[in-house]
Design a protein around this nucleic acid. Sequence first.
DNA 1: TGGGGTCCTGAAATTGAATTACGCAACCGG
DNA 2: CCGGTTGCGTAATTCAATTTCAGGACCCCA
Lengths: 287, 287
Amino acid sequence: MDLFQTLANTAGKPEGLDARLARTVLDDVDFAMRASIAELAERAGVSAPSVTRFSRRIGCAGYPDFKVKLAQMAYVGLRYLKPEVTSTTPAEVAEDIVTKAQDALFRFHRQVDLAAMERAAQLLRGADFIQAVGAGGNSSMIAGELHNRLFRLGLRVHSSNDLTMSLMQASAATEGTVTIVSSMTGIDATLVRCVELLGQQGLPTIALTQSGSPLAKAASVVITIDLPEGQNIFRPSSTRFAYLAAVDVLANLVAYADRATSLQTLRRVKAELVRSRDGDDRQLLGD
Amino acid sequence: MDLFQTLANTAGKPEGLDARLARTVLDDVDFAMRASIAELAERAGVSAPSVTRFSRRIGCAGYPDFKVKLAQMAYVGLRYLKPEVTSTTPAEVAEDIVTKAQDALFRFHRQVDLAAMERAAQLLRGADFIQAVGAGGNSSMIAGELHNRLFRLGLRVHSSNDLTMSLMQASAATEGTVTIVSSMTGIDATLVRCVELLGQQGLPTIALTQSGSPLAKAASVVITIDLPEGQNIFRPSSTRFAYLAAVDVLANLVAYADRATSLQTLRRVKAELVRSRDGDDRQLLGD
DNA sequence: TGGGGTCCTGAAATTGAATTACGCAACCGG
DNA sequence: CCGGTTGCGTAATTCAATTTCAGGACCCCA
């Protein structure tokens, strides 16, 4: 997992055969994955034994093992180390975005607190009414997705991007209401206030946010998502891929918690779509 | 890419050493990646040469090459072949969702038509006004994202989930308007009509949709995204990850097309957010 | 300044894994 | 019942990777 980190560090050193090898590898990962030890040695201008030693030093059993580990890492993280190359060709842009998105998913999967997920799913499952709240673009999308994923399981959901409105609704919330909020920063004062208000009334709140943020401190169940954001101001945030995945996992857990009801509702939604729209029931649910 | 497909097919055959080998490999991919040819041969109960022949038959240069290819595929698609296991534990659900999302991104990257992307980016860049249209949950999200990504580059965008409204706006559209629509099915009659209407007026349209769909036929620039949807009715569509990536690539290309303007606008947006919200400028742009 | 030690490196030797060659056995068509 | 074909394992071979070893650079201390 940390192979790339190690490689990048090694490549950063000013001199030494290891640095040269690391640079050669990073320069053309595909080549390194295909090449024999002799070919790689030649390209890097070192001897074959040096390659073996290099492989060992960065934590592999030998060169073949290094190749396998490299291949395992190659897709996710491929471009990560060339830090913030301002990619300009369309191919580079596409690769950059896909790679970062996959990396975000990967990291999310590593760090996801499944116990918190389950608690959240249980809360949602038992709710009489669900409020999904998020604002600011990315989290607005997540709030909308929560609605989109949960209503079809037979749950009563309202989603909102209007924090002022949510604050009012929080004051007016009744027993049985579960509120789920999303905020990548977790520092929006209105949102935090909203969650605190609900807490004071003994109403459960779920937050998708950064750990340690004010929002995380205020919510009753926290699903933390901590990801490094890149420096490239032009690159749309890959973090939302992780948030989206979190929504999906949550929705799935809710669905499984009460399979029968969910299935029934889904069938009804689907049937109506098929009837009114296209008659093609292989198309997916929702457009 | 198709290695897993091939493996799954081979494993499906009732008899033969190849089938046994494929099953052995799929049964424990990690083992296969680490094992020597002799170890794998023993576990499968075949001879070493059979493993080499097997590797060749499924399209690899030899066993080491097979291992590398296997490693490349291992994360994405790992669970793919155990087709539609109805995963029930939270860990399985999470892995399933992350894997499928990564797979969707992977496939998107493979098939993305960069030329079409560039044409679309050029159209957007040159537009006086952009209409982003999508409905039905998934595509509503995409329309919203298009707005969210493009406004901050200094473009004038309106997004809508209301197809009836969009139809009216299409009739009223003026020179300089570029319309970008998203539809995973590509068969919504109103949306197709909307695009046709614009075409008749000589106004450019961009569609993110399935190839071969009515919508794809009607639009002037088509960004095709063809992905298989899983059978699990409970699993939220992983296709939207691919759509989201498409939006990001597009937004990035637009940004680079006129770097100076984009940067300026982004800086302004960011400055305002930092000022009014948190004073922490490492937080990402939008919540 | 010089001697001993350590570290780094590549050439050569060695090991060991993967592949090829070969032959046997089963199956198929005539 | 007999060639021909195919599929497989054993044994031989090849080739890649690794270990060994020796040369050289650098450093520390006398």
